[in-house]
Amino acid sequence: MTMIELNQAGRTFKVKRRTVHAVRDLTFTVAPGEFVGYLGPNGAGKSTTIKMLCGILTPSSGTVRVAGLDPSRRRTTLARHIGVVFGQRTTLWWDLPLKDSFELIRLLYKVDRKVFAERLAELTATLDLGPFMSTPVRQLSLGQRMRGDLAAALLHAPEVLVLDEPTIGLDVVSKAGIREFLARINAERGTTVLLTTHDLGDIERLCRRVMLIDHGRLAFDGTLDDLMASAPGLSSIEEVVTHLYTAGR
């Protein structure tokens, strides 16, 4: 049983009549309950992978399956099984108070009212959303907004959570809060998590498994210990990752 399965998945873009391979021959699987860090330099193909996982982008070659579904063909069905957070922009409704955004999500995902109330109460407590529940999203601070986005992505209790740079721009305290929350979701609910980040602290703290993508290809896939062992003589994760990023070019 796998939660995410990519088989020779590739994605090309036409840029000024040149064909650019954003992702090529990507093959990996993620089992239910895994917490995977997805690393790569800017432009390596991380966001392209994530968009293929949610069905926003159709792969140009190979196959992608998430929760047993082909994302690009079954996009709206898959939406009930997957939670997505984009760190760079909110998926909430900019002009609506947070609680109205959540209510909309309940209606769109057709979550039972009672079940929803319980989940929301739990998320409100763990993410401490109470103080800004009635504030329109555009007035929230970045840290508050990210907590709101996380709650929104989990209200329909997805089996798999995909996070695109969720800690970008956050201060130390907010970051710690988000990390603790993600660890807890993964441990208690068994939610599969795929996390892309440039913050290696996120990886060290959270991910048992690390995948590293460079120039659209998988350059490393293994545990954090394997990653450290792959470059003997280097002591910190920063040094190892820098080594891997620069070795590829």
Partner: peptide
């Protein structure tokens, strides 16, 4: 242009309806 179209595509509901009613 703003990249907000993606947020309509991750919901389990027809994108046309969501965009037509937004704001």
């Amino acid at each position: 242009r703003d990249g907000t179209l993606d947020t309509f595509l991750i919901r389990p509901v027809n994108a046309w309806i969501q965009i037509a009613t937004d704001r």
